[in-house]
Every structure is written in C-alpha cells, then in structure tokens.
Amino acid sequence: MNAPAGGTTNPRDRRLRADARKVLELSENSDLIEARPLDTATGRPPEIWEVTFRCRGIVGTERDGRPVYGDHHRVRIELGREYPRVPPGLRWLTPILHPNIEGHGPQRVCIDQAHWQVGHTLDRVVLMLGEMVQYKNYHAELVPPFPLDQAAATWARQAERAGYFSKSRPVDPRPLLRPDPTAGRPGPSAGRPGPGPVSRIRVRPASTTPTPTPTPTAEPRIRIARERP
C-alpha cells in the first residue's frame, strides 16, 4: 500500500504526506493495526484517518464487575488546519472502558496541547492508542494527572485489586508490531527500520481543547489530558 501522492511543496502537506507514509508502513508491519485514510478523493495528503485495532481490550463489564473483552476497536483521527502545531483530534468509535478515554458522548482522547510537540508523528499517536487499548498504558488514580473517565477509573482500580490486569500484566501483552526478521543482520540491506518502541505517554489535566517502556532515544513523549474533576 502506498501513501497518496501529491505535488505540492507546502510544508504542512509535506508533513501530512510523511505521516501518511509512516502510518501505512506501520499498518503493513502489524497484524493488530489497520489504518486507512478517509479523504483520499480530495487529491491532497489525507487529513482524516480511521484506525482499527484487533487486539484485546475492555469494552464493558458484567453486572458483577467482571470485564467484558473485545478485539475490535476503532478510532477516528482528524488532523486539523493547525496540525502539526496542535495535536490531532481523536474520537473513539466503538465501545471502550478505559480511564483515559471517554466511554460515552463524543468519546474523546485529549492530548495535552501544552506538551504536544511538532516532532510527535502520527504513527507514534497510533501506537499510543493501541497500547491504551491493551492496558499497557493507563492512569486510573485520582491524583494528578487525573483520568478522563472517572467511572472507568473507579472500576479500573477495583479491577486491579481483583487481579484482572496491572501495569506489569496488561490485558493484551502482544507487541503491536511484528518482529523485524532482519534484526541483527549486518549491512545496509538489513531492511527499512520500523517506527521503533513507542514512548509511554503521561496523562495529565488540560483545557477542554480538543506508560510502554521508554525508548533509548530522545523521542519526545506524548501526553493525553483532561480537565481536573
């Protein structure tokens, strides 16, 4: 699969085209992630994406509080006119129970604009979202940084105590990317490098404007945010 082509030299279009290439490569290198642009008919680099995660996540609870699991999760990503100077808009499209994703209404995932950096690329955002689904990345404590969905946070703390998951034992421990078969082979023909490990985000309060293991590089961290309850 190839990223949509274009001939403009606009800096934002170049960034959108680079993001599209990275996200489509990520999708090709994963059995658990499928990303597709929704606005390819415009002839410009895509600004609206739908990403599907086929990994285990929690979509609800039984009456006794036990988690209900699902393995099909979708999120819509919109790259607004100010992107990449401001973070993308994120809206969950399928049922989800996670302290840092709204489980009702617009089902937002708020990235903290104060800590967003232009260097945060779209493929890193996609990996961040996948690790949130897997419960590799969550913050349920009612202390700074505060969770986005208070009811889900209360349930998550109880579920941790009941042993359903923990920071060291996520709901789905599988890597989102397939192992690189050329890893360790010498020479320039070892293959195109993947996006590498994703930095763990930090959840913290922010305005209403719409962790995985740290990388050994200087990759900037992404934070998601929500107002103080």
Rank of each mutant, 00 (worst) to 15 (best):
A20L: 12
D71K: 13
Q107F: 09
T154Y: 07
P37Q: 08
P193E: 03
E62I: 05
D172G: 10
R169D: 04
V68R: 15
P210D: 06
F146A: 08
D123H: 13
R36L: 15
P186E: 09
T52S: 11
G184V: 09
P45L: 14
H98Y: 04
P145C: 03
R15W: 04
P46M: 03
A41R: 15
T9L: 11
T208D: 12
H120Q: 14
P212N: 12
G57N: 00
R157Y: 03
T121W: 02
A20S: 13
A153C: 01
Y164I: 06
N2E: 15
P45K: 02
T94Y: 04
D39G: 10
P99G: 05
D31G: 07
N10D: 15
W155S: 07
P216A: 13
G194D: 11
P197K: 07
N137Q: 13
A162R: 14
T42E: 06
Y138H: 08
W155G: 02
M128Q: 08
P212V: 14
R161Q: 13
E219C: 15
T209M: 06
P212L: 08
P67I: 10
F146H: 09
G70M: 10
P11Q: 13
P212Y: 06
V51G: 03
S27Y: 06
E219T: 15
M132G: 05
R223C: 13
F146Q: 00
A35R: 08
R76Y: 04
